[in-house]
Design a protein around this nucleic acid. Structure first.
Length: 97
DNA sequence: ATCATGACTAATG
DNA sequence: CCATTAGCCATGA
């Protein structure tokens, strides 16, 4: 039967992931921004931890979340990939403009 | 209940 | 620019 492992999400995780899902193509937000949006402005590290475990990198664009100091921040698939994705998205957005 | 962890942040040197 | 530090908080052991 089903071999798909069901994943549990806490209320906090859902709020974070939903917010990340709202970030439009070619745009980036900061961990701080996300934290503030979900009403937990101080839970920045907790937000990062949610993205760190994000099992759906293809569908939940955590690569669009960077640090508030301008640095790239982490990414489960590698920072290099993250940078490329952000650059590529900007180009795509330009192409369909 | 306590404790360590970490894809962070702001301030400081 | 880089390194350090204190503050921060959800989560899992």
């Amino acid at each position: 039967m089903g071999k798909i492992k069901s994943i549990e999400f806490t209320a906090f995780e859902k709020r974070v992931l939903k917010e990340v899902l709202k970030i439009p193509l070619g745009k980036v937000r900061t961990y701080k921004w996300i934290a503030k949006r979900i009403g937990k402005p101080k839970a920045v590290r907790a937000v990062a931890n949610v993205l760190r475990k994000n099992p759906y990198t293809l569908f939940i664009p955590c690569h669009r979340v960077i640090r508030s100091d301008g640095k790239i921040g982490g990414y489960s698939l590698g920072k290099g990939v993250k940078v490329k994705l952000i650059e590529l998205e900007k180009k795509i957005k330009e192409l369909i403009k």
